[in-house]
C-alpha cells in the first residue's frame, strides 16, 4: 500500500476542509476502502477519517422518520433501529460478518454504491433522503449506476433519513464465497404505496422494480406478482450466476420478502 497522511477531524466542517486538497479521500469504517488500498486500486495522499465526528453517529426516530448518522456502524443500526424499523435493522444485521459490522458504516456503503451492497436497496426502497454536508438528495436521484452517485468530489454523506414503513423486509441470496448479495430485494409498504428495490442484479446498480411496486400496492401478497417477470437484459452475468438466473432470483426474493413482511 502506498503511504498517506492520516487525519481524523472531529467536525464535518474540518473534514470538508481537509478534503479540499488534491488526492484526499474520506474514509468511514474502511471495510471496502482499506482492502482497495491494499490492492493499490486506490492510493489517496491524504486519508480523512470520518469516525471521530460525533454529529455523524447514532440512530434516532422522530415523527415516523428514522435518522441515522453517516458514520454509524452496521452493528449499531442492527441494534438501535430494531424497535423502529425492523426491516432495516435486519438488513444491517446480516451485512458481512460481526467484525465487519463493527467497523463498516451506512454512509460509507451509500457513498461507495457497490452494485452488490445491501444498504442501497434499503435507501432506494424506503425513498430515503441522503443528507450531505452541502444538501439533501432523494434516493431516486442519488444512485446513478455502479459505484456512481450524485455525490460531488469531497462531499460527505453525513446522515440518512428513512421514512418508516408499515411493513418491510429484505431478502438476499448470498454469493457463496463473498457473502455479498448475488441478488437482494428490499420491499417496503407505505400508506401511499409499495416500493421494491433490487441490488446485486443489474449492471446499472440498484434499481426499482416498478411493475412489482404497482402490483403490490394493489395487493400486498406474494401472489400479486405471480404473473410478472423480470427481463434478463442488463442483468449481471458472471461465473456465480447468469443474467437469467439473477432475473429469476428477483421475483423469488421479492415474493419471499413480501411473505416475510406481511
Amino acid at each position: 500500500m502506498h503511504n498517506f497522511e492520516f487525519v481524523k477531524p472531529s467536525t464535518v466542517e474540518e473534514a470538508v476542509a481537509a478534503l479540499q486538497s488534491d488526492e484526499a479521500q474520506p474514509m468511514s469504517g474502511g471495510q471496502t476502502l482499506l482492502p482497495t488500498m491494499k490492492q493499490r486500486l486506490a492510493a489517496p495522499e491524504k486519508l480523512v477519517s470520518l469516525t471521530g465526528i460525533a454529529s455523524m453517529q447514532g440512530v434516532s426516530a422522530v415523527g415516523g422518520v428514522l435518522t441515522i448518522g453517516g458514520a454509524t456502524t452496521h452493528a449499531t443500526v442492527a441494534t438501535e433501529a430494531a424497535a423502529h424499523y425492523p426491516g432495516l435493522a435486519g438488513l444491517a444485521a446480516h451485512i458481512g460478518d460481526p467484525a465487519v459490522r463493527n467497523r463498516g458504516t451506512i454512509g460509507g456503503s451509500l457513498a461507495n454504491n457497490d452494485p452488490a451492497a445491501c444498504y442501497p436497496s434499503a435507501a432506494l426502497g424506503s425513498g430515503a433522503t441522503i443528507v450531505t454536508n452541502a444538501r439533501e438528495i432523494a434516493a431516486d436521484d442519488y444512485f446513478q449506476g455502479m459505484f456512481t452517485t450524485a455525490l460531488e468530489e469531497g462531499e460527505i454523506v453525513t446522515g440518512v433519513r428513512f421514512p418508516i414503513p408499515q411493513a418491510s423486509n429484505y431478502q438476499k441470496f448470498e454469493q457463496p464465497a463473498s457473502r455479498f448479495a448475488l441478488t437482494g430485494v428490499f420491499v417496503a409498504k407505505y400508506a401511499d404505496g409499495v416500493r421494491v428495490a433490487v441490488t446485486g442484479a443489474s449492471e446499472e446498480g440498484v434499481f426499482r422494480w416498478t411493475e412489482a411496486e404497482a402490483a403490490l400496492s394493489a395487493n400486498f401478497s406474494p401472489d400479486a406478482i405471480e404473473g410478472l417477470s423480470v427481463s434478463a437484459d442488463g442483468m449481471i452475468g458472471d461465473l456465480h450466476g447468469t443474467p437469467a438466473y439473477r432475473a429469476h432470483l428477483i421475483k423469488v426474493l421479492t415474493k419471499r420478502a413480501v411473505a416475510a413482511a406481511s
Binding site: F6, K8, G30, L34, P35, S49, T51, A75, P98, A99
Partner: peptide, 29 residues
C-alpha cells in the same frame, strides 16, 4: 489472508471485535 476474509487477526477494539488487518493503527489511537 490479509484480505478481510479469514478472521485470524480478530482483536477487540473498545470491546468490539474487529479485523486488525482491516483497520489502520492510527484509527486505534
Amino acid at each position: 489472508c490479509d484480505t478481510s476474509q479469514c478472521g485470524a487477526c480478530t482483536v477487540h477494539v473498545d470491546g468490539k471485535q474487529v479485523k486488525s488487518c482491516t483497520m489502520f493503527a492510527a484509527e486505534a489511537d
